[in-house]
Amino acid sequence: MKKTLLIVAFLCCIITNSKAQVVGVDVGDIAPEIDLPNTKGEKIALSSLRGSLVLVDFWASWCGPCIKEQPLLLKLNNTYPEKLSIYGVSMDTKKPLWTAAIAKGKLPWINVSDLKYWQSPAVADYRLQSVPLNFLIDKNGIILAKNIHGKALEDKIKSVLAP
């Protein structure tokens, strides 16, 4: 009887301690899919960038901290052009404001939006409460870091891409 109880207890420990890969927004989770149109109306799926390091950047043209961070994102984009993809998700509701901000900032990376602001499925999937918010995702779609900015973001990308 004791042997059976020990075996059952051991199996319970194994089952509760094993962490299955789940879709979610915590570090270690598989990043939820985003499939939104770019400025030309063409849908671009986040999963289409698998195979490279991806920074998903939630931003808006009216967000001062978002705009302030764009020079760093440009620097990272230019430093790691073959190793890092940036997938910008705009929370703008007016296409002219969104496209003007992209042009003004000279943002060369993928920018998508459904122009639905907080009603976008991506908002719910990523539990977005404010911008800026970002997620660093590895080549397999696993979240490595979230909501890191400035030097911390730069250092994290450099460490992930170090040989």
Rank of each mutant, 00 (worst) to 15 (best):
D26V: 01
K83E: 10
G24Q: 01
K106T: 10
K19V: 06
L72F: 05
D35Y: 04
P96S: 09
I30F: 03
V25S: 00
L36W: 04
A101V: 11
V112Y: 01
I44V: 15
I44K: 03
G88C: 07
D29A: 04
I15P: 08
L55H: 02
V89C: 07
S90C: 03
I102N: 03
V112W: 00
T79C: 06
I44G: 01
S85D: 04
A45R: 00
I86M: 04
G105A: 14
D92H: 09
W59G: 05
W62C: 08
I86S: 03
K95R: 12
P37R: 10
Y87W: 09
E33H: 01
P65W: 08
P32I: 07
L36P: 04
I110S: 00
L11A: 14
V27I: 15
N17L: 08
K68Q: 15
S47L: 03
K104S: 13
G24Y: 00
N78V: 02
A31D: 01
N38F: 00
V22Y: 01
G88W: 00
I34G: 02
A101F: 09
C12P: 13
A20E: 12
L72Q: 15
M91R: 15
S61Q: 10
C66G: 10
P108Q: 12
N111K: 06
S90H: 08
L74S: 15
V112M: 03
I102R: 03
D35M: 03
V54G: 00
S48V: 04
I15V: 15
G28S: 07
K43D: 02
K83M: 05
N111I: 03
E82A: 13
T39L: 11
P71V: 07
P37G: 08
I67K: 12
V56D: 02
W62Y: 15
T99L: 09
T93Y: 10
F58E: 07
A103D: 15
C63A: 08
I110P: 00
V56E: 02
N17E: 11
C13F: 13
N111H: 12
L73T: 08
K40E: 14
S52H: 14
L72P: 07
E82C: 11
V112H: 02
V27G: 05
W98F: 07
C66Q: 10
L74N: 13
A31P: 01
P96Q: 08
D92P: 04
D26T: 04
L36G: 03
E82D: 14
A45H: 01
G51S: 08
S52G: 12
Q70A: 10
N111D: 13
R50C: 01
L11M: 14
